[in-house]
């Protein structure tokens, strides 16, 4: 069978309508997880099927798509998903955040502020923020209905009692518009402040768990915390060794068998752009030469 045998953006129209209806409900009820009849996709569950279905339901032929995994455009799964849409939707692709109209991401929010007209699609493994406290779907659904989030606060507080700090560093739960507690997907908590008041539309797809949820632009999103232990979106206390940025989220790399380390931006598009503008870091070629 050839690619032409598949519909524009792979999914059949009935499936897209079903996903589109779920997306609109998600926007109308920010942070609420809308059940949807996720389809089997030609990539495995857990590898972005939710994000891929949301992207497929949103793409028009006029879009420019960017796909990132861990902030990078060239990680294998990002490459694979980008290729899938190049084949099935013939859309333009770009690695430049500002040029993209639809960005599918796994685990990061780009460093550059997003703008109106952009859509950020998150791949979500476990959409239920309460799942690790209560494994039963029927029970967590009831807890959301009754706004019964005490268990979550107890868990965070136990962290503080035991470790002196909240021991959640990614997939850090947030409260949306003072109503629903939401899982922001496994982004580092460093990225949490970018969830709220974002000019772009943020859509979340969990394929295996059959849930879609959304944040409209400029939505009020608060990371859960306590007065005496305010939320702290920390990152490694270093600058990027390639572009010198002191404000970006960093990957740590082990560079030799003696345990030498270097730190580089996880957002490759951001880092490359800064290097092109002439910014340098500790290990830039010029820096080494100097």
């Amino acid at each position: 069978m050839t690619d032409q045998a598949y519909n524009f953006a792979y999914l059949d129209e009935a499936t897209k309508r079903m996903i589109r209806r779920a997306l609109l409900k998600g926007l109308a009820i920010p942070g609420y997880q809308v059940p949807f009849a996720s389809r089997e996709m030609p990539m495995p569950y857990g590898w972005g099927t939710g994000g891929v279905q949301v992207t497929a339901a949103c793409l028009t032929p006029d879009d420019t798509l960017k796909v990132i995994d861990q902030g990078a455009d060239d990680t294998t799964n990002a490459v694979s998903i980008r290729k899938f849409f190049e084949r099935t939707a013939q859309v333009q692709t770009s690695e430049t955040t500002a040029k993209a109209t639809v960005i599918q991401t796994r685990h990061r929010i780009p460093e550059v502020a997003l703008t109106e007209g952009q859509i950020l699609v998150y791949q979500v493994p476990i959409p239920e923020p309460l799942r690790f406290l209560e494994p039963r779907e029927s029970e967590t659904r009831r807890m959301h209905a009754l706004e019964e989030y005490g268990l979550m606060h107890v868990k965070l507080y136990e962290d503080i009692a035991r470790h002196g700090a909240i021991a959640t560093s990614y997939a850090y739960p947030v409260k949306v518009e003072g109503r629903y507690v939401m899982d922001p997907s496994p982004i580092p908590k460093f990225d949490n402040p970018k969830l709220g008041s974002n000019a772009a539309i943020q859509l979340f797809g969990a394929g295996r768990e059959q849930r879609i949820y959304a944040l409209p632009p400029y939505t009020d999103v608060v990371s859960l915390d306590f007065e005496d232990h305010p939320f702290d979106p920390s990152k490694a206390d270093h600058a990027c060794d390639l572009c010198g940025s002191e404000v970006s989220y960093l990957d740590e790399l082990i560079t030799d068998d003696k345990g030498s380390r270097m730190f580089v931006c996880s957002d490759t598009s951001y880092c490359t752009a800064r290097q092109d503008e002439g910014h340098t870091g500790r290990l830039s070629p010029e820096g080494v030469a100097a």
């Binding site: 590898w47 990680t75 685990h107 990061r108 990614y170 496994p186 580092p188 960093l250 990957d251």
Partner: peptide
């Protein structure tokens, strides 16, 4: 799949 970001945090 890569989990550099989560692992880093």
């Amino acid at each position: 799949l890569p989990h550099y970001v989560d692992f880093q945090s």
